[in-house]
């Protein structure tokens, strides 16, 4: 009995020492080494791909933002985003999805409302949006709630409104969207996308030039 207690204690001691050594290696040296390399080689990316406009940081090219006025291109809905409920000395954005199911009445209503809003917002004199033209990404929330991109179809659908509200020609705004459309990586990886923040920065610049 005494023997087995001693053996167990010895084994637990060995386990603890193993854990501590491996913690130093994988929990201290590894992340610090990767951080060192990352900061040296890819400073901007390692720090969140922040982008500046008019001399101030206006966000990250990777993180979608909400709250653009109708002068600007609209992002995807983000009904799954939250705010923090603990450590409330900070005001943090909690990434997340709605997790509503395909047969959820709540989700169905969100989609229908979003669809009606896209039609209403984007139909301008001489250009009527048909509900069947609206791509799925325009009326659904993304997985992170921070999707930085919209599909080229959704961007294209907003062109007339954006042109009208900014006093620009439709052709000029169409060109802007085209310039900011990123195709699939190597032609087949992922889906074509338009980065909303970058597009809106370019739009603002274009308006300022006029």
């Amino acid at each position: 009995m005494n023997n087995s207690v001693t053996n167990t204690a010895r084994l637990l001691g060995a386990s603890l020492r193993a854990l501590l050594v491996l913690t130093v290696l994988t929990g201290v040296i590894y992340p610090l080494a990767v951080t060192g390399v990352a900061q040296a080689l890819f400073t901007n990316k390692a720090n969140g791909s922040e982008i500046k406009a008019d001399g101030r940081v206006v966000g990250s090219s990777l993180i979608g933002q909400q709250g653009y006025g109708l002068k600007y291109f609209q992002p995807r809905p983000a009904n799954g985003l939250g705010v923090n409920s603990v450590n409330t000395q900070y005001k943090l954005v909690l990434s997340g999805a709605t997790n509503l199911s395909a047969d959820s009445k709540v989700l169905l209503k969100q989609v229908e409302d979003a669809k009606a809003k896209v039609v209403k917002d984007n139909s301008v004199p001489g250009y009527a949006v048909k509900p069947s033209d609206i791509p799925a990404d325009a009326v659904t929330s993304s997985g992170s709630g921070l999707d930085p991109a919209i599909s080229p179809q959704y961007a294209g659908l907003q062109v007339h409104r954006v042109a009208a509200r900014n006093g620009l020609s439709v052709a000029a705004v169409e060109k802007l969207v085209k310039d900011h459309t990123e195709g699939r990586t190597l032609g087949f990886i992922g889906e074509p996308q338009v980065n909303v923040l970058e597009l809106n920065i370019a739009l603002k610049d274009l308006v300022a030039e006029q």
Binding site: N99, A102, L108, A136, S142, G143, Q193
Partner: peptide, 24 residues
Amino acid sequence: HRGPALQAAGGAMEGKEVRFGIGG
């Protein structure tokens, strides 16, 4: 994309990111 909400949306993009798409 079967299911009432996904049919209404026109694609199973709820909870998915544009850059990955449905295939990825």
